[in-house]
Design a binder for these strands. Structure first.
Lengths: 291, 291
DNA sequence: CTTATTACCTGACATTTGTCAGCAAATTCG
DNA sequence: CGAATTTGCTGACAAATGTCAGGTAATAAG
């Protein structure tokens, strides 16, 4: 009974939804119904495109429209037509909207603080919450193909470079490495995929087209909090499929012996070690895989 | 960001409320709004008194009344006047109500199962969920007196014995120890209390009556995930009160030097060390407390 | 250019939920 | 016993939410 996974999970769910009810009362504490409050918060958190907010909150277009008008009448937001697509509209907080959003943030922070504060050993609780949040967020991970120049892609690469710099003995300076031209990672020549969890980038992988009869896998990275959940495998599966669909039948990649788990990962996935195939100063392990 | 307690807690909250939204869609999956579904589930989980359900779900009396009538019209529940208080009413599931409730249970179980099954290392996730659920549910912990033969009581004792076997040098074989007769832990001779967190047992303590002018405290246990939250103290307070109400004025207990935190705990709570008072092979520390 | 399609809006309507005042019956307390 | 309290019901209303059938303008597709 005590080890029954179903009973334990359902108890967790009950505990958390009861608590969530309490937390959500913070929304009501400012005399505004849940609907408008959720929209205001979505905008405050950087969602500007109406369609994006609608999809995220799963709202009917009619309802959404009325909620926006309500917030506009309150003077909390401004709506402007999108510059790239005249049908779309974009929402921005006004000054008083920013103040109101900040107030919601303050309340949320306070609630969060209380939960942690009343635990005798906060770090234990926090670690447990990280594990749960990562696990639950995992099913909502979406893979998206986009340009490596795009801000979210650059954010991934930034962290990737920083981690490399820490782990390689020699450090890592991306300007000295063979930094793939962005155009090599854009279809139909190549591809760049990022994994998004609730809109937050937690992983990426690049497929760099060459003129040498093969393509290269570059920049495979998974955020610390998401490791051990098979995300790297998911990224690789997807990028291999994408390579096939682009007519590529041979893949190569280089890596470094300072990253033993990466080497084991490639071996397990059917890559075979080959001789050095480039003059990049950082890698010392080279792999190949025929699709 | 990853070490900031507030950011981590809020990320957890986001992950969990999104997931809860998905889970709650299981309520909607049966073509019934959330309100009636919640009431039906409360009744199915053993809440019969209308007032109790109302307090639990925080519903207005008018709304509650209409929800009940709706369920009655659907033929899912029956309402009867309370035998002890003519003002109160009690709700019972009809046969078709039981079938409907079972269907909700099946859906919930299925959802719970999926969450766990998707995780590469379920036990890590389950432990994390236990810690979170216990922390959030600490205020809702209920102590219940029941027979040590009851399944939930046996489940507690089972874990207790297993932990003892691990921690004692000598191992632990319950059949060699002075296993209290169940009847000694049933009122009016004794008592057995378990702590329930959202229905899941997370701790227990036994009060074993004797004919020697004192009663013994036995089987004080708190689940790993609930330790450090003051539950042991709560259990002891309650069982001491219970002892008083049964006319007992002297308590004894035995324990083992392999459990130093237990010994410190008893000392802090006003127990005094005494000489060995039994021939049980496992304990080597003996305490007494006058009520 | 014509025809879909897309993104969003509007109005109309139903349902669900929240809230309140008032009422009746049962119970408690002086 | 009689007044106060408790429990729960009813009706009336307001607010919030869900849903749908159009409509307009911008864009994409043929």
């Amino acid at each position: 009974m005590l080890s029954d996974p179903i009973a334990r999970t359902r108890r967790f769910h009950r505990a958390v939804t009861t608590e969530a009810g309490v937390l959500d009362s913070s929304f009501l504490g400012r005399g505004r119904p849940l609907g408008p409050a959720r929209v205001l918060n979505a905008i405050g958190h950087g969602m500007h495109d109406i369609g994006e907010i609608r999809a995220y909150l799963r709202l009917d277009s009619g309802l959404m429209s009325r909620l926006l008008r309500g917030l506009e009448d309150e003077g909390l937001i401004e709506l402007t037509a999108s510059s790239t697509d005249g049908r779309r509209r974009e929402a921005q907080l006004t000054n008083s909207g920013r103040a109101e959003f900040a107030e919601y943030e303050r309340l949320s922070d306070q609630q969060a603080e209380q939960i942690v504060a009343r635990h005798p050993r906060p770090e234990i609780l926090l670690n447990a919450m990280d594990i749960v949040a990562t696990a639950l967020g995992m099913e909502r991970v979406r893979l998206e193909e986009l340009s490596p120049e795009e801000p979210r892609a650059r954010a991934c690469l930034q962290v990737y470079y920083e981690e490399l710099a820490q782990r390689l003995r020699t450090g890592f300076d991306v300007t000295r490495s063979a930094d793939p031209e962005a155009t090599d990672m854009i279809p139909p020549r190549g591809s760049f995929l990022i994994a998004l969890s609730d809109g937050l980038p937690i992983g990426c992988v690049g497929l760099k087209g060459t003129d040498k009869g093969y393509a290269e896998i570059k920049r495979l990275w998974v955020a610390q909090s998401a490791r051990g959940m098979g995300l790297a495998g998911q990224l690789m599966d997807t990028v291999e499929d994408r390579a096939r669909s682009l007519g590529i039948d041979l893949l190569r990649l280089d890596t470094n012996s300072a990253l033993p788990e990466a080497i084991a990962f490639y071996r397990k996935r059917g890559w075979t070690e080959i001789d050095r195939f480039n003059e990049d100063p950082y890698p010392d392990f080279f792999f190949e895989k025929r699709l």
